[in-house]
Amino acid sequence: MTTRTRSHEDSVLEMLREDEAFAIEYLSVALEEIDEAGGGDAFLLAIRRLVDARGGMGSLSQNTGLAKGNLYRSIAAGGDPKLSTILKVLQALGIGMSKVVTHRTDEACA
């Protein structure tokens, strides 16, 4: 009998796609570490993985009205997106920035 396994990456993408609480926690942790060395790129990578899990750049481009090429550059490592771009992207992914920020605040108070 053969046991099927899948990669860690595939498992994470599935959880980002299907588990809203996991996706919010994932982004919250990345945001919490944004001021550390490499934290900005790590936050953008977290957003990029969520994009990949939830339909990809083509779908995101259609949902935000932003050009696909600009999205690729903005949310890649070393990208420098405007806050308005991040807000549009997160909203299109179904997770507003307020959910990400509030999630960390709620846990700190608990």
Results as ranks from 00 to 15, higher is better:
Gly79His: 00
Leu93Gln: 02
Ser98Ala: 08
Ile75Tyr: 09
Ala92Ser: 12
Lys99Trp: 06
Val89Tyr: 02
Gly94Lys: 11
Leu83Trp: 14
Lys82Asp: 08
Ser84Glu: 15
Lys99Ser: 08
Ala92Tyr: 02
Thr102Asn: 15
Val89Ser: 01
Leu83Lys: 09
Ile75Leu: 15
Lys82Trp: 13
Ile86Thr: 05
Ser84Gln: 14
Leu90Arg: 06
Ala76Ser: 10
Ser74Ala: 14
Ser98Glu: 07
Ala77Lys: 11
Asp80His: 14
Leu93Gly: 04
Ser84Lys: 12
Gly78Asp: 07
Leu87Asn: 06
Arg73Asn: 06
Ile95Asn: 05
Val101Arg: 09
Arg73Pro: 01
Met97Val: 14
Gly79Glu: 01
Lys99Asp: 10
Ile86Val: 15
Val100Pro: 04
Thr102His: 14
Asp80Ser: 15
Ser98Trp: 10
Arg73Glu: 00
Tyr72Cys: 03
Ala92Met: 08
Thr85Phe: 10
Ala92Phe: 11
Leu93Asp: 02
Gln91Gly: 10
Leu83Cys: 04
Thr85Ala: 06
Gly79Met: 01
Leu71Thr: 06
Arg73Tyr: 08
Ile86Cys: 03
Val100Phe: 10
Ile75Ala: 00
Thr85Ile: 08
Met97Phe: 15
Gln91Leu: 09
Ile95Leu: 07
Ala76Thr: 01
Val89Glu: 01
Gly96Met: 05
Arg73Ser: 05
Val89Met: 04
Leu87Glu: 12
Ser98Ile: 08
Ala76Cys: 02
Asp80Arg: 15
Ala92Trp: 12
Gly94Asn: 12
Val101Leu: 09
Leu90His: 06
Gly94Ser: 08
Gln91Cys: 04
Ser84Trp: 12
Lys82Cys: 05
Leu93Ile: 11
Tyr72Asp: 02
Leu93Lys: 07
Lys82Leu: 10
Ile95Phe: 11
Lys88Pro: 01
Ile86Gln: 03
Thr102Glu: 15
Gln91Pro: 01
Thr85Trp: 11
Val101Thr: 13
Ala76Arg: 05
Lys88Gln: 13
Ser98Pro: 01
Gly78Asn: 03
Leu90Trp: 13
Gly94Pro: 10
Asp80Trp: 07
Val100Thr: 03
Gly79Thr: 04
Arg73Phe: 02
Asp80Tyr: 08
Ser74Asp: 10
Thr102Phe: 14
Gly78Tyr: 10
Asp80Leu: 06
Arg73Gln: 02
Leu90Gln: 01
Pro81Thr: 05
Lys82Glu: 13
Ile75Arg: 00
Ala92Asp: 03
Ile86Leu: 10
